[in-house]
């Protein structure tokens, strides 16, 4: 990481070309949506589970993207909010017997508040220092979850086991398929919300802070409030993802939420494209599938393979999938 600098911004384009590539994008989006809706009906349960995890990571990455891509704040610790979301759901289900559906918004809310509160002191910290602070958060998370005084609630190192819910109303879906659709629905809802947020007045303020905090302040944007709020919203997304993950995996334990998770989310963000929301899908796919591919290429050197794949991807698309798609669109336009 370096001291601030550019964090990959989409280039401005003229309007007619935008409309043309807009139609292409629309068709592509419809195709992707159709595949997302239909594929679980034809796949093995384990594959459906993997796809669900991909969507869950995509939701978390979307949250991170709001913070990093649109507001310019680094976070190496989003795994912490993922963990808070997961534990909120698990504790509510285990100790209070609350239905899983209700725990998700609660988890989101808890994470929003935690994110906002963490964002307040973090306001003073720039780039690398913020990275260290969030990094510390990621390191601390599993250790705090293991604390003996919290064991009554968190289950300590053992964690909490949850029961997987069945599809309601006698729908002819397996548990995995049902949870896939729950995740897909939540994901689309959140995507819609994120898109509207980014295009709103507040969204412009958030991006103005990224591009030039001093100018944003002089235009009357309350920089501190917006930064802390963005942190909260970002944590909310990631927390919802964590809550869904707890239900889907049926299990939470401290060692699922180490630094590795936070780093994976960040890698997913970059692979998908910083500042481009749909890229989250590519990022989620990377997190779920690439380690498996690396493992298959070489068992003994799977870590090295994983690293090589990462380097190759960055070579091929230095600004992530989003950057690649923009380049292709520009090229298409020029023909």
């Amino acid at each position: 990481m370096t001291a601030q600098q550019d964090i990959a911004l989409p280039a401005g384009r003229d309007k007619t070309a935008d409309r043309k590539s807009g139609t292409a994008m629309l068709l592509l989006s419809i195709a992707v949506l159709a595949v997302l809706f239909l594929c679980p009906l034809f796949l093995k349960n384990f594959t459906v589970f993997q796809l669900t995890m991909m969507l869950i990571y995509a939701i978390a990455i979307m949250g991170l993207n709001l913070l990093t891509g649109f507001n310019g704040q680094f976070s190496l610790g989003h795994g912490a909010f993922y963990a808070i979301g997961a534990y909120t759901t698990a504790i509510l289900m285990e100790h209070f017997g609350i239905a899983y559906g209700w725990t998700i918004p609660v988890a989101g809310l808890v994470c929003f508040v935690s994110g906002f509160l963490f964002g307040l002191p973090a306001l003073r910290l720039e780039s690398i220092y913020l990275a260290l602070a969030t990094f510390s958060l990621a390191i601390a998370t599993p250790q705090i979850l293991k604390l003996s005084i919290l064991e009554e609630w968190t289950g300590g190192v053992q964690g909490i086991v949850i029961i997987k819910p069945d599809a309601p109303f006698g729908l002819p879906l397996s548990q995995d398929q049902w949870l896939y659709y729950v995740t897909l629905g939540t994901g689309l809802l959140l995507y819609w919300a994120a898109r509207n947020l980014v295009r709103s007045r507040s969204g412009r303020a958030i991006m103005a802070i990224r591009d030039n905090p001093v100018a944003a302040r002089s235009m009357g944007v309350n920089v501190s409030l917006y930064k802390a709020l963005t942190f909260g919203v970002s944590a909310l997304f990631t927390g919802v993802a964590g809550a869904l993950a707890a239900i889907v995996v049926q299990f939470v334990a401290p060692d699922s939420f180490t630094l590795v998770l936070s780093i994976a989310l960040l890698v997913g963000l970059v692979v998908g494209g910083v500042g481009w929301l749909p890229g989250a899908l590519a990022g989620g796919a990377f997190i779920v599938f690439v380690p498996n591919i690396a493992e298959e290429v070489s068992k003994g050197l799977s870590g090295a393979m994983y690293g090589l794949i990462m380097i190759l991807l960055i070579y091929l698309m230095p600004s992530g999938a989003g950057g690649l798609i923009r380049t292709l669109a520009d090229w298409q336009k020029r023909r």
Partner: peptide, 20 residues
């Protein structure tokens, strides 16, 4: 390349050296 892409390269190097 953007800063965050460098970060991913560092993570990749990390994985490579550890595994090697």
């Amino acid at each position: 390349a953007p800063v965050l892409s460098h970060l991913v390269i560092f993570i990749a190097l990390y994985a490579i050296f550890n595994s090697l």
